[in-house]
Design a protein around this nucleic acid. Structure first.
Length: 501
RNA sequence: GCCCCCAUCGUCUAGUGGCCUAGGACACCGCCCUUUCAAGGCGGCGGCGGGGAUUCGAAUUCCCCUGGGGGCACCA
């Protein structure tokens, strides 16, 4: 810890940002990007900025803003500047920064580093199609770059609304010094004079991102791999604007099981969905941290403090990673087993409330979550498992097909159930210890192994083949319900219709 | 078509020229423990995409190929 602290001293000025476009839920890939940014900021005692890239008016929604903010909060990734907290470099929505982009664009025009382009989208599209067909590079040909004053005026008079393009160097290379990948070279000629401002007056992604990263004094841009080809454009822009560029780190993508980029096709991909499925934020953080980053060859579990203390971009890998839900489930189970029992009970209560699952516990006369939690804690892998494991405490017995078959074919089941009902009815103290003593004794009297003895009891009382420990289960279920259910099962077995083959 | 990125067990990864007959984790398969199921313990299966080159020596360096991915938008 002290080693870390020492090194922090001179990196106190780190500023990073997470810049989602609010067009949907927070995607698991975005969550990892946010996490890495957050870790990097915390690790260097820097500032984590949340910026909304909402320049696409068509697709951006307030609903999406809400969801992204909720998901980030739930994940525990708090931002120092951004929506709802503000800060000295705001506003933090690009739609509210229009003046900034306009001034930058005007300056570039005035300095003749950018120009108005009157080409129609359809014309450009046609040209691209031609270029592709002819095997030529698909780059803007610079038609309006050298437009004369007179021609420009004429087009303007005809009512054409121009876009603004950057004059990109036609020769030379732009090199991106990526922290994760090293130097990556791009031919300037391949870049083309890209659009800065749409004819509608709104800035494009590259323009807004470059202006904002610089004006917000971002020191490290940590983002997805898919932005690597954009980086030379942003670099060129900052150069034209005479702005100090940040350092860049491009994270490899997250893939689905079929090795294509993770998307809705692969099922649950939003943080919100993982929350609904009963995953813990600390488990998701731990799993996501390891999806692309590692400390060494053996450390798997990291508390958030560990992560903050040990995370580094240098140890982020270059390879795209497949998202393995199975491993997340396992890790979540580990966190559940190791959680303080009372805290877990609280989480379960919140979860059940939030998801409104069947068998809502807690009504008068029913067992409460804190009472049930210790019975199922070590069996749960997600919070959702709680309901699956304990529903029979709240609901009438609903026999699972497999369990019913097993009950019917169990040896001496009727005899066992009868004996158990008698014991339960007459037990002076109805608690787990007494139950264990007397039921073990009964099994031994009947020369039946305890496991075999308990099987029909388990199924009678729960309708399931799998339950928490039987003695604890009976004791929490209570004498009356236990006896009633056992007697009911006994009758079921003895009724004429229950013959089986 | 052009530009760029990537390549170790099924999956996540360690590995930065000899410590590697390649280590760990998930999954899978056995065994143990056990009141079921989990959990836990022990063991097993399983990998450096291919070809050249450099070197006394390559998972590790270079080149080519192959495969995967991203970009080439008035989307972000």
């Amino acid at each position: 810890m002290s080693v870390v602290d020492k090194r922090e001293e001179n990196s106190a000025s780190v500023r990073v940002r997470f810049a989602p476009s609010p067009t949907g839920h927070l995607h698991i890939g975005g969550a990892r990007t946010a996490l890495y940014n957050w870790l990097f900021a915390r690790r260097h005692r820097g500032v984590f900025v949340l910026r909304l890239e909402d320049t696409d008016l068509e697709r951006s929604t307030e609903e999406a803003v809400r969801q992204i903010i909720d998901s980030l909060r739930w994940l525990g990734l708090d931002w120092d500047e951004g929506p709802e907290v503000e800060g000295g470099f705001g506003p933090y929505r690009q739609t509210e920064r229009a003046g900034l982009y306009r001034r930058a664009a005007e300056r570039l025009i005035a300095e003749e580093k950018a120009f108005y382009c009157y080409c129609l989208p359809e014309e450009l599209e046609a040209e691209r199609t031609r270029a592709r067909a002819a095997g030529r590079p698909v780059v803007y040909q610079g038609r309006c770059r050298g437009l004369s004053e007179a021609d420009a005026q004429k087009l303007k008079d005809e009512g054409h609304r121009p876009a603004i393009r950057l004059k990109t160097p036609t020769a030379g290379k732009t090199v991106v010094h990526d922290i994760i990948r090293g130097a990556v070279e791009f031919d300037n000629a391949q870049l083309g004079d890209f659009i800065l401002v749409r004819s509608s007056g709104t800035p494009t992604y590259n323009f807004a991102a470059a202006v904002d990263d610089a004006s917000m004094k971002i020191t490290h841009v940590i983002r997805g791999d898919d932005h690597l080809p954009n980086t030379p454009r942003q670099l060129l822009l900052m150069e034209a604007l005479d702005l100090e560029p940040p350092k860049y780190a491009h994270l490899p993508l997250i893939l689905g099981p079929d090795r294509s980029p993770l998307s809705k096709r692969h099922g649950d991909v939003s943080v919100d969905e993982f929350r609904s499925r009963g995953f813990l934020p600390e488990a998701l953080r731990n799993y996501l941290a390891l999806l692309g980053w590692s400390l060494d060859d053996k450390t798997t579990f990291f508390s958030t403090e560990d992560l903050v203390g040990k995370f580094s971009l240098e140890r982020v890998g270059c390879t795209a990673a497949v998202f393995d839900t199975g491993k997340l489930v396992w890790m979540n189970g580990h966190y559940i087993r190791n959680m303080d029992e009372r805290r877990l009970a609280g989480q379960i209560e919140d979860y059940v409330k939030r998801t409104r699952l069947a068998g809502l516990p807690g009504k008068a006369g029913r067992p409460r979550v804190p009472e049930l939690t210790p019975l199922v804690q070590e069996k749960m892998k997600t919070l959702a498992d709680f309901v699956i494991l304990t529903d029979f405490f709240f609901l009438p017995v609903n026999f699972e097909e497999k369990a019913l078959a097993r009950l019917k074919s169990a040896e001496r089941a009727v005899e066992i159930l009868k004996a158990t009902a008698e014991i339960l009815s007459s037990l002076p103290v109805f608690d787990a210890e007494s139950l264990e003593v007397s039921l073990r004794a009964a099994a031994s009297r009947m020369s039946v192994k305890v496991g075999k003895f308990l099987e029909p009891v388990r199924i009678a009382v729960s309708g399931k083949a799998v339950t928490p420990g039987m003695f604890e289960t009976l004791s929490v279920l209570g004498r009356e319900k236990s006896v009633n259910r056992i007697k009911a099962a006994q009758q079921l077995l003895q009724s004429p219709g229950s013959n089986q083959d």
